[in-house]
Write a protein that binds this DNA or RNA. Structure first.
Lengths: 335, 335
DNA sequence: CAACAATATTGAAACGTTTCAATTCATCGT
DNA sequence: ACGATGAATTGAAACGTTTCAATATTGTTG
């Protein structure tokens, strides 16, 4: 119950501390009879190895830190899941910190993990200033940006091409014959949002169209519903005939507003495209067309790339970018 | 970049290691000028405190471990959120492990956290055998069961009364005038599911009614949809006029099946009650009546109770039980 | 200005493991 | 029976902090 160290185990089993260590770590050549004696002593005394001492001596931590924006967003839940799997396979444990888009908390977790001497740190940063991360990386903790490009900072990153995704969404909307598209989303300080808009607007302008923006404060269902209420209240001539939402939560909320507060039909009167393709997108009453991001793969690749970079001698930074994929469902006209 | 310890900082600042420690830990009385010198040295050298050494010496870890069934289930996401907040307030960090209802992985995380000497361990166990947890608790790591009663084991617990919740659901269904209720859910090896059924069935029998069960393998949207397809295919006389689903994900899937594969109206032809009241329940096209569990409060209380027990001398076990609350929405007839 | 109190700083001993060179022990070939 | 060989075990030195008694430095007061 109290303090049981290898010392006590060794005494009880009548061997030296070194031998106990060997037994506990399985590996080394220890006589079967000795191993048995030691294991009995361990059970009898209820010995639990002290990870702090182990790590202090060995210098390793065998864990990775992940700091995400928001665990309750299904997209990040998937990223975490993929990262977890990759860690399992590498025999590492994954410690998760949830910043809740709070820069202070994010910073706290980054420091905590650095002190913990994690083998690496995966971060989706909230703000635009990445200098803390750069400095942490400089002090010996490898950092990998997740879902955020390294633009100008000496950091590695794994991202999905948001500009291409935005373009895809608009491409599909225009191919369906819509002529008055709009963008729903915000805040534009999030690069994810800004880039999706950039790609979408670029494509719209190629067809000689404007792309009006209905801004939101957050990327939540409620924000989407509020935006939807405004849109459906517009007179027929001014109302968009298609909206591209910066993420699926917005799209779900928007759809609710359309169904609750108007007689507009989806997709005939108004088409809706979301982003992320979260599991719930498939579960809305009018199944949602969405730009799918390979969320689990993103998490998995972030871990794997980080481990690779750790293993290699050269300390280059890599920027890995995935391409999103359009998933067409009932909320838009097919082709 | 390489190893920078307090030794190097001390040399650089021209003070002793002890003084550096005092500066780093803020607290003690150190002359302002000395503190400045030390801090400069820290910045110049990029010193990062070694948590392992700190913990080894002090014996404390200032962190809590949480092992949940499934991070991607919004209910558990909320539990984790509540726990995180309570930890923040207590100045602890929360490490999350996701067992994915895999007993082996659960056991791995429990061991990992025990070796880490966490101040406490919050676990929602997958299986029925809690002896590993009891033994870990006996070896000095306080354990708190979350959303799982301690029945027979010498462990503390924080739960929500599932029997009462089940009864509530049926009560509401019967008050709405339904006469052929059914239960959707499984596996019954999960105490959460079994207890909800128990409460519901008890209430049904008081009104002289049967409560047929449509079993599911998992508590997911897809499983709910499959169950729903079976139910709507039944002939008019045999089909339930109300279903109580073991959780909201099932209810959402069930609702989809009703809307996609039948002309039945909700709630007039078939009423639906879910469980958990996750955020998405409010977001389904027919807003879902659900038995709300105070998920965040559950997580918060688990942490707070654990810390209280740690602080007290007596090592009693506490079982704290909350009562759920019915939230009536459009998927059932009001009163 | 001496004596004392209050405040700053130092030094060194843990904390519990891993690791590796050194030592002991058993086995085998000749 | 005797080294030689290899396997099993031991001992002790780190790892980098915290902590606390001891010491040094200042400031205050009669």
């Amino acid at each position: 119950m109290a303090k049981v160290s290898m010392r006590e185990v060794a005494d009880r089993a009548g061997v030296s501390v070194g031998t106990v260590s060997h037994v506990v770590n399985g590996s080394s050549r220890v006589a079967a009879s000795t191993a048995r004696k030691v294991n009995e002593a361990i059970d009898e005394l209820g010995f639990v190895r002290n990870a702090a001492a182990r790590q202090l001596r060995s210098g390793h931590s065998s864990s990775l830190g992940l700091v995400v924006l928001d665990t309750s967003n299904p997209f990040f839940a998937s990223v975490a899941h993929g990262a977890r799997q990759a860690c399992d396979e590498a025999g590492l444990s994954l410690l998760i910190g949830d910043s809740g888009t709070d820069e202070v908390r994010e910073s706290k977790y980054v420091d905590l993990f650095a002190e913990q001497r994690v083998n690496g740190l995966l971060v989706t940063p909230t703000g635009s200033d990445l200098s803390q991360l750069e400095s942490v990386a400089g002090r010996g903790t490898p950092v990998m940006l997740v879902d955020r490009a390294s633009r100008g900072y000496a950091l590695s990153s794994v991202t999905v091409d948001n500009v291409a995704g935005g373009r895809m969404a608009l491409d599909h909307i225009l191919a369906g014959g819509c002529t008055r598209p709009a963008f729903i989303g915000g805040p534009q300080s999030l690069p994810q949002v800004a880039d999706r808009l950039l790609g979408a607007r670029g494509r719209a302008e190629e067809s000689g169209l404007e792309l009006p923006v209905f801004g939101t404060e957050e990327l939540t269902i409620l924000a989407g519903r509020n935006a939807g209420e405004k849109v459906v209240a517009l007179p027929d001539g001014e109302r968009p005939d298609a909206v591209f939402c910066a993420n699926d939560l917005l799209a779900v909320g928007f759809m609710q507003a359309v169904l609750m507060f108007s007689d507009l039909r989806i997709p005939d009167d108004i088409a809706i495209v979301g982003y992320d393709d979260i599991d719930y997108a498939f579960s809305t009453i009018v199944p949602l067309t969405s730009v799918r991001q390979p969320a689990e793969l993103l998490g998995r690749t972030a871990v794997e790339t980080l481990l690779q970079e750790n293993a290699s001698v050269s300390h280059e930074h890599h920027d890995r970018e995935f391409t999103p994929e359009l998933v067409v469902r009932g909320s838009t006209r097919p082709i």
